[in-house]
Structure formats: structure tokens, C-alpha cells
Simulated scan of single mutants.
Amino acid sequence: MLEVLGIDPESESVYAALLSGRPVAPDDLARTTGLPPARVRVALRRLQSSGLVGRQHGRPATYVAIDPEVALDGLLLSRQEEIHKARVRAGEFTERFRRAAATRDPAEVIEIVTGSDAVQQRSDQLVRNVRHQLRVFDKPPYHDGGLDPNQPELDLLSRGLTVRAVYDADSIDRPGRQRLVRMWAEAGEQARVLADVPTKMALVDDRLAVLPLRAGSGPDPSPSFVVLHRSAVLDALSALFEALWAVAQPLRPQGVADDAPEALSEQDQLLISLLTAGLPDEAIARQVDLSYRTLQRRLHALMERAGASTRFQLGIHAAANGWVTGAVRKKTGSGGGE
């Protein structure tokens, strides 16, 4: 626990044994902690140099703990000062890097990463360095089968950062993917779906973009990805994401609460989202866990409820009345009150 202050676990164990306040000899500490006497003496020297224990002369020599409020606070303040200096230095390095980047050869804006392991390692590294938000285009093929729980993203969400994902229709119509999409949504991911996403891509804040070098229908045994640094190309990719995000349909997997559940049931919300995103009926039936015949009955019921004679009219009604986003239109009476 105190390793962040430079105190190793064995030294921490010895320090904890001294907190009774009475002087204790090294051999007694060895019996209390279960550590060999030689390692107890090493720990005591470390604790003494850190200002956590004091030695009392005599035969045998004994040791006492220094008040933690004084000793540990001193170490904390010292470590905070070191972190502050490191941040200042990091800022200097960042500024130097940006100045150099402004004069770099344009080819240096592009970084090529090749090989499955290298691509995975670089992608995880970039995601873990997100400062504000991660934006993702999710599209097959998947080199891991598409069933990786994506722990780096879950870590981001647990830290309260924003993750927005636009899923290709094919990406959610795969065995096991709906469970993962639900897990990410429950963790806080904002998800939308499109019939056809142009490419898989990850945007790290406004600093970096990662996308495949080659398009293809099948997994590449030795994939190559491009990492784009700040440039006009990165700005264009950011604008592309925002444009497609604006037209994509919100995706709420079943089991994920909506802000206004009274608008439609969870299952019907998912059904409408997938329908307006352009998925075929067979794929929708699989995603909402209905038989094809039951799906047709459900769609007809929704059309009757919307007063629509075609699916296109149903989509228009869904968008106009908040069925897609889950919002509920407020009804006003003749006097203007709710």
C-alpha cells in the first residue's frame, strides 16, 4: 500500500509491527512478522533512512515507530513535489515535441504499425492515454473474433471519461456481440448504429487517429494500421465521425435503462433503432430475440400505434415522436399547460 511512497511491502510489514509504540528488538520483529532476521534488519535500515523509525541504543538495539502523521505526511509532501516537477518537465517535453512536429516532414505525421501483437499493443497504449474522449467506428473484420471485452475502454469509462461508438450493422449481428455491447453500454458507453460504417477507426481526443491501412473482407494475418498525428487529415476524420454520429441511430441493448422508458419498451426501442439503421428483418429478429413471425407481428403493432401504412412512415413517426432517442413529446392542453 505504501509502495507509492517508496516503501516496499516487507518494510511496511515491519513498520506496522512497530506501531504499538514500544521499542522492539529486530529478533522480536522477525518473530512477529515471520520474516528472516536479516531481512528485518534491511527493512529497518530502509525505514530509518525514510524517517519512519528511530533507533534506541542499548543491548540489544531496539526500534520505535515515528508518528505516522508526521513521518508519512513528510513523505507524501516530498512525493507530491516530485510529481509536480515531473509534470512540469513533461509539459516542457510536450511543447518541444509540438514545435518539432510543426516543422516535420509530412510523412512523419503518419506512423505505420504492422503485425497483430504490435497493433494490439499500440492500440491499447493509445486508448489508455485518452484524456477527454474516445470516439470509435466499430466494423468487422475482427482479428480476435470480435469477442474481446476491451478492458482498456472499460477502464476509461470507470474513470468517467467519454466513449462514443458508431457500430456497423454487421458488427452487432454476430454471435456474442450483443452481450458485449450491452456490457459497454452499462459501463457508460454512448452507442449508435449505422447500416454501413466506412471503416474501423479510433480517435483519441483530437490528437491521434488509428485506422487500418488496408480494407478487406477477411482478417489479415499480418494487419497494418495507420496512426495519424495532428494534421488536416485528422481534422477531416474527426469531422467525418461527427457527421455520421449525427445521422446514426441510438443503440440501446435490452437490459440497459433508458431516460424515458415510458416512450417504448426496451425491446421496442432496440427494434426501432435497428429498423431505422437499415438491418434486415432476420438480423433484427436475432438481436431482439424474437422469431421472424413474432417480429412481423410486433412491427405491425408498432405501425398501427404510429398510424403508419409503411415502414418508411413508421421511421418518420419514430424520429418525430422521440421513439428513436427515447424522448417523449409533451402534450399541451388548449390553455397551454401540460
Rank of each mutant, 00 (worst) to 15 (best):
I7F: 01
G21P: 05
V24E: 07
D27F: 12
A38G: 04
R41E: 13
L44K: 07
R46M: 03
R55S: 04
A61F: 06
T62P: 05
T62E: 12
I66N: 02
I66H: 03
L75I: 07
L76K: 00
E82R: 01
R87P: 03
A100V: 10
V109F: 10
I110E: 07
T114E: 05
G115W: 12
S123V: 06
L134S: 05
L134F: 02
D138N: 05
D144V: 12
G146K: 12
P152Y: 07
D155K: 08
R174M: 09
P175T: 07
R182P: 04
W184C: 10
E186W: 01
G188Y: 04
G188K: 06
P198L: 03
L203S: 03
R214E: 04
P223T: 05
H229F: 02
V233K: 11
L234Q: 13
A239T: 15
F241V: 02
A257V: 10
A260I: 10
L270E: 14
L270V: 15
S273T: 11
L290Q: 14
S291P: 08
R293V: 13
R297K: 08
L302R: 01
E304R: 07
F312C: 02
Q313H: 13
Q313D: 15
G315C: 14
N321R: 13
V324H: 02
G335A: 11
